[in-house]
Design a protein around this nucleic acid. Structure first.
Length: 638
RNA sequence: GCUGGUGUGGCGCAGUGGUAGCGCAAUUGAUUCGUAAUCAAUAGGCCAGGGGUUCAAAUCCCCUCACCAGCUCCA
């Protein structure tokens, strides 16, 4: 007998080699019916898993969020079965569950169209009705290769060949379909009721552009229809906050065929930019940063010296001036190097923090462009910190804290990644290790959780990346801190030490917003276009009831404008309802209705964006202090 | 860059071989109005661009460009 500790800490004895399914049946008939999988000593297993020794077991039903992964993974198999039924000869790639669903990669002569998804779904439903059990079988490497080789599943064979020595190789079979898979799976296809195929896309085999592109079908699955409906509704909602849509509606920016990836900022978008930049300057001045500006076009010689010519040429734009080669800057650092070298520096000058709102141009692949989130020219809120080796940790921590301060003000949740040495890079292994360790130590000291992103560093150094999510949950790198021992070497940067000798400084490249354009896109989606007062392009709109209130309205307008409150007045001969509606659609934080009552008492009727009240009356003076408080405190409404 | 899809007035859409349409926005006139849409009239499109098939092309074919989703790449 083996002892099983259940979720409620009760202990049950079952015969050795009993399956989880049998255990569930012993506990209750309902549990046996609803069970999908189980967590055995913390690992998710299927119901056919045999209990060989004492263990803690938590039986999972469709109600458990942890069974969702199993459900989705099984649905991926179901979809693959349906695809192979309908399109014989289709070869299988991989088919995992992912954050909001699953996908499967196929290599097929047939080109899948959105219409095919409907047919595949029907076939899936048919298989569900037939209720095939998912049967696990453990096999040797040679058996597995023989089996999948016999089916012509060359991608599966490749996967098996690359499996490390000594791992258990398992296959799962449901009906006429068998897949290489570690599992676990639901008991049978009949457990899969709620799913939907979403879209088709290309994806390189094993994620490398050197390999063949397979066809990937994305889908999702839930335990309840209501959950799927809610998910689909949320997707629709998310599209409503898409910055490309809101950017157009709110007249913030535009993109044109004449300049793909080169955004045009409209007056209202410029207000946002300028607010972000003003705030940035203020915060940086307080932290001992100086601001500089370096040229956009610089001589080829400089880019050869910096290593960009050798490592970054693919992404750069070039031009010729007086028969000499020049490049448009893709990064601000070489300019910063030249600036550093304009003077002899003492150790007493370090750390030297030089900030630059620098416009950079990068040739991004056409297919990668995406609204303001991925463009070909953007402004980095850059800074280069030149320092003594002994100052590294404190400076990194200072930047981490600054990023945190900024993102908290906007109400952003973020996650952190540590990107290590890429293949195409320069410098010694020792320098890279030193730099990577320094970043890691700073992260540990701040107690930040982070994920390691191997090979994703800059060509001159490793980096800490700060990622934010867009409306659809895709993450975008914004802030980054890069530690660099290479550039100071390449440019022969020095400082005079206490000993009167020349020494090599270390430097940090860092951005907080990342790119102003990208940050504005994420802010727009984050606030769904309803910017907090301090950022709102128009903070207040005054709505006179009729023409005879224009004088008073204008008086209020002047008083607001004199205090640098961004206010305007709706002078059109429209009904008040109409004016209110427009102020709301434009997501203006405050609409002030003024009529006879207000004009007589020097008050305004304040209607806040999104609050359908009839407007609180307050004196102009009180309203001004309300707005000024919100601006000063950068108050967030949502 | 790759795979698939899309491209029709400013925006959202209809129009599958026979004279380009709707709603919103815009403009003009009237309406002077108390918390989310006043009424009427007018104007606006070489149907992304180029080439081809046809008596005839928004519609069929080819090429190019842009956009969307994903892959790759990245702030």
């Amino acid at each position: 007998m083996v002892k099983v500790t259940l979720k409620d800490n009760s202990i049950r004895e079952v015969e050795e080699n009993s399956t989880i399914g049998e255990l569930a049946a012993q506990i209750s008939r309902n549990l046996a019916k609803d069970a999908i999988a189980a967590k055995v000593n913390g690992e998710v297993k299927d119901l056919a898993f045999k209990l060989k020794e004492d263990a803690s077991v938590e039986i999972l039903t469709l109600e458990d969020s942890q069974s969702l992964d199993v459900l989705r993974h099984s649905t991926a198999h179901l979809m693959a079965q349906a695809v192979q039924n309908l399109y014989p000869g289709t070869k299988l790639g991989i088919g995992p569950s992912i954050e909001n669903g699953f996908y499967y990669d196929f290599d097929s002569e047939h080109v899948f169209t959105p219409d095919d998804l409907i047919a595949i779904e029907s076939e899936m439903k048919k298989i569900v009705k037939e209720n095939y059990p998912y049967q696990r079988k453990e096999v040797s490497r040679s058996e597995a290769i023989e089996f999948f080789g016999g089916l012509g599943e060359k991608y599966k064979v490749e996967l098996i060949e690359d499996l490390p020595e000594g791992v258990t190789i398992s296959m799962y079979t449901q009906g006429n379909f068998t897949d290489l898979c570690v599992g676990p799976h639901v008991p049978s296809t009949g457990s899969l009721k709620v799913f939907k195929l979403l879209n088709v896309a290309g994806a390189y085999w094993r994620g490398s552009e050197k390999n063949k592109m397979l066809q990937r079908i994305y889908g999702t699955a839930f335990s309840k229809q209501a959950d799927l409906d809610e998910y689909l509704f949320k997707l629709e909602e998310a599209k409503r906050r898409d910055h490309r849509k809101l950017g157009l509606e709110l007249d913030l920016f535009s993109l044109h065929e004449e300049g793909p990836g080169f955004p045009f900022f409209h007056p209202k978008g410029m207000v946002l930019r300028n607010q972000l930049e003003d705030f940035w300057r203020q915060e940086h001045r307080r932290r001992g940063y100086h601001e500089i500006k370096t040229p956009i076009i610089l001589n080829r010689v400089l880019w050869e010296q910096s290593g960009h010519w050798a490592h970054y040429k693919e992404n750069m734009y070039f031009t010729e001036i007086d028969d000499q080669d020049f490049a448009v800057k893709p990064m601000n650092c070489p300019g910063g190097m030249i600036m550093y070298k304009t003077k002899l520096r003492s150790y007493r000058d370090l750390p030297l923090r030089a900030g630059e709102l620098g416009l950079v141009h990068r040739h991004e692949l056409s297919g990668a462009l995406h609204g303001l989130l991925r463009v070909r020219n953007f402004t980095q809120d850059d800074a280069h910190i030149f320092m003594l080796p002994s100052q590294i940790k404190d400076e990194i921590i200072g930047v981490i804290e600054l990023v945190d301060r900024f993102y908290k003000i906007f109400g952003f949740e973020y996650h952190v990644e540590l990107s290590t040495r890429p293949e195409d890079s320069m410098g010694s292994d020792e320098a890279w290790e030193l730099a990577t360790n320094a970043l890691q130590e700073a992260l540990e000291e701040k107690g930040l959780e982070y994920k390691i992103n191997p090979g994703d560093g800059a060509f001159y150094g490793p980096k800490i990346d700060f990622h934010l999510r867009d409306c659809l949950g895709r993450t975008w790198q914004c802030g980054t801190i890069q530690l660099d021992f290479q550039m100071p070497e390449k440019f022969d940067l020095t400082y005079i030490g206490e000993d009167g000798q020349k020494h090599r400084p270390v430097m940090i490249h860092r951005v907080i917003y990342g790119s102003i354009e990208r940050f504005i896109a994420l802010l727009t989606e984050h606030y769904a276009g309803a910017f907090p007062t301090w950022l709102a392009p128009v903070q207040v709109r005054i709505l006179p009831i009729s023409e005879r209130h224009h004088d008073y309205a204008k008086d209020v307008l002047n008083r607001l404008n004199e205090l640098d409150i961004r206010a305007e007045m709706d002078e059109r001969r429209e009904k008040i309802n109409y004016k209110i509606r427009e102020a709301q659609t434009e997501k203006i934080p405050f609409a002030l209705v003024v009529g006879d009552q207000e004009a007589e008492t020097d008050t305004v009727a304040v209607r806040r964006y999104g609050q359908g009240n009839s407007g609180e009356k307050m004196s102009v003076k009180d309203f001004i202090s309300l707005v000024e408080d919100e601006i000063k405190s950068k108050k967030r409404i949502n």
